[in-house]
Design a protein around this nucleic acid. Structure first.
Length: 496
RNA sequence: GGUCGGUUGGCCGAGUGGCUAGGCAGGGCUCUGCAAAAGCCUCCACGGCGGUUCGAAUCCGCCAUCGACCUCCA
């Protein structure tokens, strides 16, 4: 008897039972990267959080359509609309065509996703591929009286919208305060109100990226693509919309306004927001320039990193904190994660290798394992609480190690318990958490040499030639190879 | 200034009105030629001050403090 999945909905600010609109189907939309630069580790954390959420939904048996966009249209740097186009500025900086920038960083993004074992979305649409649909939505908004053209650009009329609807339902803002806050900004002549945001922006000749529209040549506003693409692929109302906390306002707020303004219905049932990743206690962000790239973590090639960390170590670090809490990355935290990861994967290996043997039952042990399995499921059902589920897996890991310690077989529990143990322990680690075995890819030659060395050392040990035996082990240790004399007489090695 | 969220043991990091979080580190023991690994046991805690309660780290209030968003960012 397991609990039901519940999720923390930013919209209601409460935890709600997750009930899909059309079970067993689930629509999931996640705001993807803007491909004008390499993704940094903070981006990676968000995408990993939703990767795990996606994986868990699939694990529960849902048929999930997972849409994550690629922003390649180069939206404005700010709502005031000083026509700065990120894609273009980066293109000028690198002396590349805008689409070369897009291609370069899209490929780079996919490469990072692959290394960190992120499952590809089922649809990965691009903004530039949906210009036509974006223009259509703008027309609808104008027809509905919540958008207006001004000097070749089109803006969303927030005040007008707010007469019938509520702008700010997601972020808890009210427009009077927002207007007050914007008052000292200038360069907003085209807008009726300072809080109005761009749907379409007029482009002058110097802009390389521009498209024809009923309002002249230009490019789409930066909130629009998500409204358009989520509606196109997931319908007017879908189940889950995810993204980083920093997108809650204004991006997600504007998305809701656009959908309600154009179609008349709120687009999303459950809004999920993942929290920021800090580095040295400070938010890691592109604008602060303190970001560590995923590739730098893997190579260790960064002044603040003591060593290289494997992708699975980083993934494990993310799992150790809840997706809605801030997380801090540091050498210590990474090294802790590395040990924890190895410990669980070692138990996983043992569980896969050990046979189950029927026999006398220890009901206390059986109960204990079943309890831990139930807790693991309950904890994941409780808003994807990976740190708690991980604690359950550590407890199970102890049991598995004990089985191995006492005869290398799983005994004294029911067959059904064993089956569930395998299903949950393996399933959570590999399928839900997306951890993969990082086998040290030792070459055949290496294995051969090590076999010889171990044999020579064992000869010495059999002759009780401890100085020689220890000399070999110490030498190997200095070379980064640790020998382990197991209880059964075998010696294994590990490259560190 | 507005909105929101933190403040937990040496470090990281969950959670709950009374019942062990967990990991890493530390200490002890078992195993082992010695180590490593593994197993067992163990130390260390809930920002401050009030209040509610039989009982609060958990609820309420005040204070202190840190941070996020309000402006491009996952």
């Amino acid at each position: 008897m397991s609990s039901q999945l519940s999720v923390y909905n930013t919209l209601s600010r409460t935890k709600e039972i997750f009930e899909p609109i059309n079970p067993p189907f689930v629509g999931l939309y996640v705001c993807g990267p803007t491909v004008y630069n390499e993704v940094h580790t903070g981006n990676l954390r968000t995408f990993t959080s939703f990767d795990i959420i996606y994986r868990y939904l699939v694990f529960l048996g849902y048929k999930v359509r997972y849409v994550r966009n690629i922003t390649d249209a180069g939206h404005l740097t700010n709502d005031a609309g000083e026509g700065v186009n990120r894609m273009e500025s980066q293109a000028r900086l690198e002396k590349l065509e805008p689409m070369e920038v897009v291609q370069k960083y899209t490929v780079g993004f996919h490469e990072v996703c692959r290394k960190f074992n992120l499952i590809r979305p089922t649809i990965e649409p691009t903004a530039t591929g949906h210009i036509v649909e974006q223009i259509e939505m703008i027309k609808q908004l104008i027809d509905n009286g919540v958008a207006y053209e001004s000097n070749g650009s089109v803006y969303f009329d927030v005040k007008k919208y707010n007469e019938i609807n509520v702008y700010g339902v997601l972020s808890g803002r009210n427009i009077d305060e927002l207007i007050a806050g914007y008052r000292d900004l200038d360069g907003q002549d085209e807008k009726r109100n300072s809080i109005d945001f761009a749907l379409w922006k007029k482009a002058d000749i110097s802009h390389i990226m521009q498209w024809p529209s009923p309002w002249g040549n230009g490019f789409p506003g930066w909130h629009l693509e998500c409204s358009v693409m989520s509606t196109k692929y997931l319908g007017e109302t879908f189940d889950i919309h995810g993204g980083g906390m920093d997108l809650k306002f204004p991006h997600h707020e504007c998305e809701i306004a656009q959908n309600v303004g154009a179609i008349g219905v709120a687009p999303v049932k459950y809004w999920l927001h993942s929290n920021m990743l800090n580095f040295n206690g400070q938010k890691m962000s592109k604008s602060l320039g303190n970001s560590v790239l995923p590739t730098e973590l893997i190579t260790g090639n960064h002044p603040l990193l003591e060593k290289a960390y494997s992708p699975m170590t980083v993934r494990f670090l993310f799992l150790m904190s809840h997706y809605s809490s801030e997380s801090d990355i540091s050498n210590k935290a990474l090294q802790d994660a590395e040990k924890g990861y190895k410990k669980l994967m070692q138990s996983l290996k043992l569980l896969i290798e050990m046979p189950f043997v029927d026999g006398e039952m220890d009901s206390a042990l059986d109960n204990e394992i079943n309890k831990e399995l139930e807790l693991a499921k309950d904890n994941m059902n409780d808003d994807f609480n990976t740190p708690r589920a991980l604690a359950n897996l550590f407890a199970l890991s102890s049991h598995i190690n004990t089985f191995f310690h006492n005869g290398k077989k799983v005994v004294r529990i029911q067959r059904a318990t064993y089956d569930e143990l395998v299903r949950i322990f393996n399933g959570f680690l590999l399928d839900v958490f997306g951890l993969a075995m990082e086998e040290e890819s030792n070459s055949m030659a290496m294995d051969g040499v090590m076999q010889l060395v171990i044999e020579m050392r064992n000869d010495a040990r059999n002759k009780k030639d401890w100085p020689m035996s220890d000399k070999i082990r110490d030498y190997l240790k200095n070379a980064g190879i640790v020998l382990k004399d197991n209880k059964d007489g075998d010696t294994s090695y590990e490259v560190i």
